[in-house]
Design a binder for these strands. Sequence first.
DNA 1: TTGTAAGCGTTATCAC
DNA 2: GTGATAACGCTTACAA
Lengths: 344, 344
Amino acid sequence: MKSVNIQDIAREAGVGKATVSRVINGKGYVSRETTAKVKAVMERHHYQPSALARSLSRRESDAIGLIIPEANNPFFSGLLTGVSQVLDKCGYTLIIRTSGNDKQRDYRALEAMRYQRVRGIIYVPACNYEDDDDFAEMSSRLVDLGGPCVILDRPINQLDCDCVLSDNFSGAYAATEAMIQAGHRAIGAIAGNIQLMIGRERLEGYRKAILQNRLTLHTEYQLTGTFGQKDAYAQVMELLQKPDRPTAFFIGNNQSEIGFLNAVRDLKLKIPADVAFVGFDELPGQMVFELPYSCLDRDVVMLGEKAAQLLIRRFEEPNRPAERLVVVPRLCLRGSEKRLNKLK
Amino acid sequence: MKSVNIQDIAREAGVGKATVSRVINGKGYVSRETTAKVKAVMERHHYQPSALARSLSRRESDAIGLIIPEANNPFFSGLLTGVSQVLDKCGYTLIIRTSGNDKQRDYRALEAMRYQRVRGIIYVPACNYEDDDDFAEMSSRLVDLGGPCVILDRPINQLDCDCVLSDNFSGAYAATEAMIQAGHRAIGAIAGNIQLMIGRERLEGYRKAILQNRLTLHTEYQLTGTFGQKDAYAQVMELLQKPDRPTAFFIGNNQSEIGFLNAVRDLKLKIPADVAFVGFDELPGQMVFELPYSCLDRDVVMLGEKAAQLLIRRFEEPNRPAERLVVVPRLCLRGSEKRLNKLK
DNA sequence: TTGTAAGCGTTATCAC
DNA sequence: GTGATAACGCTTACAA
């Protein structure tokens, strides 16, 4: 890692390192000619200062950490894209870690960020940290970080910091109501992981819509478990074969939507003739096939951008009250929510 | 960024910093009791050394740079996933930048990596750098990096370093040949960006298959331009409306495949009855819908893993000859390559 | 087995 | 305007 350093430049330019430093940072008085001379030497050697030494000396790094559950999921890679865009533009360095939705790996990610002395982090937590011990563990690590944190997508109770969230409740409510308006009376929910706040909020939105419209809330219509595909598949397969099955579903995320669709296909049912639905988030490949599947759409890249902006703003105004940005998902009705006559 | 440092620990434990350092790194002699004492103090303060100071002192960082064209593309986020997995496991830190396939941003990414003094990089170049000046620019920055580089997915001529590539030529050849075997005689290619080596290799594989089988190579059947969706759409729309159109296509990547599929849909053609194809890479959403679309499949995550492994190996054995890993894509025939009787 | 001290490449505080 | 010099937090000879 040996390369020309500020000392070398200073020597060759016949000045002190302090002067070179002034030239690099463009602050402090330094004469026209000295500046020119120093710059020439720097160019000649492709001199580039060391962020390492700089951060150490300034006691402040320009690295920002991003912790996400997984990179291989269009939702999270969308967030990453947004974050990356604004960080690049503003001259910050992006350090990334994934947690795989695992608490322990989440802790390790947090620690890795501290090890790197990041200036702040953007954090999609692996879980809710509702258990007191877990919360203590997590927030201790967050505090140790010593820098600001922006929570992205998955809220954590009792954590007072900037966050960028989605209005899961009203999204789910709107989706469910759309199906009710379409004439459905027996509506199920594939709620996914209600350990996660976002899962619960979505389930609650669904429930509220059902109750508000004076329909019956069937416990057996509320499928919960993980946000994963196989889980949804198994549960939907079972429920759809019961005589008294729902005619429509609110689906909590795109992975469970895949499971749902696979079940529907295997049961040789038609959408929306045999079973209708509205899902949370666009399906991967939705844009490809332009399928008439209704969903709650979020501008994912924008969420990432907002989070990054919030963090940077926090650097500038450390004492601003915590900001909470809640984005309402847009309901896109494309037909799969309909109730056709075929259904009794 | 103020936090407890090695000096604080040393003082409180009543030892010298060197001893603390030995404990941290577990090397050098230090007595059982001293170790215990120091460890206790470290735990009490949640002490975590600074990677910044450590790297500076060791003249070697544990950060690894990854430069990819975009994060919001399943192919690249797959690579990222693979890279991230092995880096996490081996204790390296991942710094990421995107180039947006833009040469200038690519340069800046390279410079940012140097600024951070990364130990090495994994690099999916924004372009080919075939022009001498461009190549000089790029490779100068690569040299300035001062660390090893693993080229991923997009080869660069005359650059002698480790790389992980796909056998684009034989993939395209196999895909085209499959369609010939299926009975097609008029086969087009949606070759995408032949500025990129990978684009040319794919086009050449197609050509070879056509010629080898003594078929005619029609210039107008070879669509080139970008790997983008709109471009493919426009070109396919035009070609498919000509009287003398191809009955099948080799498609150079998944984005152009989307364009192709949209055109096919808009023209109300059926696959493979009216037009057949084999594409490069899985379509986003392929797993979702289990469509009978044939393609050349690559284990994308594995490519990322291999690249990371190669880089780490290079740290350990700096003088090993450059390794060139070429993965042959697997041809998955699912029906879209067929030739049905309907075609004249 | 442990401590002292000299770096590592910057920035920042003073004098000059 | 400019140049020493002391940090920054750590590692690593070299002594003791």
